[in-house]
Design a protein around this nucleic acid. Structure first.
Length: 283
DNA sequence: AATGCTTTCAACCGCAGGCTA
DNA sequence: TTAGCCTGCGGTTGAAAGCAT
């Protein structure tokens, strides 16, 4: 006999948003059996979902340890840097941010970061035009493609928030009868043989803060503290020149028309993130 | 208040590579 | 060796919410 039986019958498969009841069923099942063997999940649970949908729901939303919303400046910088190195390989990028899913990073890139980078490009162009001999600047990456329309900063729709709350509520019940903490439970799951066997691809490198910081390129090769000063010093400039790179930067940096200094981008991200000037960034 | 446009993000689709019978 | 399933990935879609008029 060749091949395997089909994973699920396409007829009668439910699509669309998951209900809290479905989430409970899925979480309960995975509590008992561990993630993986997705073909069996709809069969054994009675969920009218295909195995793919179950895996996606678990991987992107129900899996413990996922951090939702509010990307930090550090995370943004890491994503931008890795995207420039790896391209749109979201799974690879997500492996450096274990609390984030590839889908979340992809969405965040498409809805926020591309716009920020586009505005950054506009600022660099403005600066280049004001100083140079005319050659138009570009970054070395394809980061700046995509539309820019009427940005709204860091909004979290109420539906998104309520959905997160629902999931949190679901997982609040995820406690063993004993006094094992949820962290212990998560740990016990991810170290279980069934989990390891079934989710070998979910083994992201867990990086220390130092390692995470090392992923972020430093502008001008200068020290953290000096860069930090640079960023903070320039916060005011940028607000008074119609979006152009400020005079301070003009005097401080040597601009390569092909590759605007990374610290410009870092500073831009910092400004766009609304991080207070006294909040110490990593560089 | 009503309407239409824009933005966001959860979920789906289709493909590729690996695996299995 | 081969046919076909399983899993993971990246691109895309569409419903819902926000915003502007």
């Amino acid at each position: 006999m060749m091949g395997r039986p089909p994973c699920c019958d396409k007829v009668g498969i439910k699509k669309g948003p998951w209900t809290p009841e479905e989430d409970i069923i899925l979480v309960s099942y995975i509590q008992q059996h561990g993630p993986g063997n997705w073909r069996l999940v709809p069969i054994n649970t009675g969920l009218m979902r295909c195995s793919k949908s179950c895996r996606l729901r678990w991987t992107n939303y129900l899996r413990p340890g996922i951090k939702r919303g509010n990307f930090t400046y550090t995370e943004e910088a890491i994503i931008v840097h890795l995207q420039s190195l790896l391209g749109n390989r979201w799974a690879a990028i997500a492996s450096y941010l274990p609390q984030r899913t590839d889908n979340d990073i992809k969405n965040y890139w498409n809805t926020h970061l591309k716009k920020k980078l586009r505005r950054f490009q506009a600022s660099v162009d403005c600066y280049m035009n004001s100083t140079s001999s005319g050659s138009s600047s570009t970054t070395s990456h394809e980061l700046l493609s995509g539309g820019y329309q009427n940005p709204r900063h860091h909004q979290i729709p109420s539906a998104y928030a309520s959905s997160t709350e629902n999931i949190s509520r679901l997982l609040q019940g995820w406690v063993m009868k004993s006094k094992i903490t949820q962290e212990d439970e998560v740990q016990s799951i991810i170290t279980s043989d069934s989990y390891k066997a079934s989710s070998s691809s979910f083994a992201p490198p867990v990086l220390s803060n130092e390692e995470l910081e090392s992923l972020i390129p430093l502008g001008n090769g200068s020290s953290s503290s000096s860069n930090n000063n640079n960023i903070n010093n320039d916060n005011n400039n940028n607000n008074n020149n119609g979006g152009c790179i400020g005079a301070w930067e003009k005097s401080q940096c040597t601009v390569d028309n092909q590759n605007p200094p990374l610290f410009m981008l870092e500073k831009w991200l910092l400004d766009e993130s609304g991080v207070p000037a006294d909040a110490a960034p990593l560089f």
